[in-house]
C-alpha cells in the first residue's frame, strides 16, 4: 500500500464515521428550540442555497452545452437525437429577428448552414462506406449539384440588394422557404438511401 492508498483508506473510513444527516438536523432543531441558534435567514438556508445553486449551475451548463452543440454542429441532421433542439433554436432565432428584412437574413443564414451540413454529411458518409462507393458517388454528385446550385442562388440573393428592399421581402421569403424545403427533401433522400444501403 503506498502513501496515496493509505490516505485514500483513511478518507474512506472517515466517510463511515460521518454523523447521520438526521442527527445533525435534529441537534440543530433542538438548539434552535432552546433558543441557542437564532439563525439569520441567509445563514439558515446557506447550505440549501449552495446545493441548489451548484445543481442548477450544472443543469444550466449542461443545457447550454447541449444547445450550443445542437445549434453549431454540422453533424446534427434530421436523424440525430438533438435535431429537434436545433430546429427549436433556429425557430427561436427566426422569431427573435425583428422585421422582414432581418428575418430574411436569418433564413438565408440557416439555409446556408443546412446546405453546409448536408454537404459535410455526404462527404463523411462517402469516407466511411467504401464498399458502397459507386452508389455513394452517385448520391454525392447529385446532392453536391443541389448544394452548389442553392449556394449560388443564396449568394445571388445576398449580393442583390434589391431583394432586400421592403417591396421584395415577400418574394424573398417565398424563395428562401422553397430552398429550405428542397434542402429538407434532399436530406430525406440521402437518409433513405443510407438506410437502404445498410
Amino acid at each position: 500500500m503506498n502513501l496515496w492508498n493509505i490516505k485514500r483508506r483513511f478518507a474512506s473510513m472517515s466517510r463511515h464515521a460521518r454523523p447521520d444527516r438526521e442527527f445533525v438536523n435534529a441537534l440543530r432543531r433542538e438548539l434552535q428550540i432552546k433558543g441557542y441558534l437564532s439563525v439569520p435567514y441567509f445563514q439558515r438556508f446557506h447550505v440549501w442555497w449552495k446545493r441548489a445553486l451548484a445543481t442548477s449551475s450544472l443543469v444550466i451548463f449542461g443545457l447550454i452545452g447541449t444547445g450550443t452543440y445542437a445549434y453549431a454542429s454540422p453533424s446534427v441532421l434530421p436523424d440525430h437525437p438533438l435535431y429537434p433542439v436545433r430546429t427549436t433554436l433556429e425557430q427561436a432565432e427566426l422569431n427573435v429577428a425583428r422585421g422582414a428584412k432581418a428575418k430574411a437574413r436569418v433564413q438565408s443564414k440557416l439555409i446556408a448552414r443546412h446546405l453546409h451540413a448536408l454537404s459535410k454529411s455526404v462527404s463523411v458518409q462517402e469516407r466511411f462506406e467504401d464498399e458502397e462507393a459507386d452508389e455513394q458517388d452517385v448520391i454525392h454528385e447529385d446532392v453536391q449539384d443541389v448544394v452548389t446550385l442553392e449556394q449560388q442562388i443564396l449568394s445571388e440573393m445576398t449580393v442583390d440588394k434589391a431583394l432586400f428592399d421592403e417591396d421584395e421581402n415577400i418574394l424573398l421569403n417565398k424563395a428562401l422557404k422553397e430552398q429550405a424545403r428542397r434542402v429538407q427533401q434532399r436530406l430525406q433522400v440521402v437518409k433513405r438511401h443510407r438506410q437502404n444501403t445498410r
Binding site: 472517515s14 464515521a17 460521518r18 454523523p19 442527527f23 445533525v24 441537534l27 440543530r28 438548539l31 441557542y36 441558534l37 437564532s38 439563525v39 439569520p40 445563514q43 439558515r44 447550505v47
Partner: peptide
C-alpha cells in the same frame, strides 16, 4: 451568540468524528 449557528455548522461533523473515535 448569534454567531453560534455558523460555529455549529462548521464544526459539528469534526466534533462528532472526534468523539466517535
Amino acid at each position: 451568540k448569534r454567531h453560534f449557528a455558523t460555529f455549529y455548522e462548521t464544526y459539528v461533523e469534526r466534533i462528532y468524528k472526534f468523539v466517535f473515535y
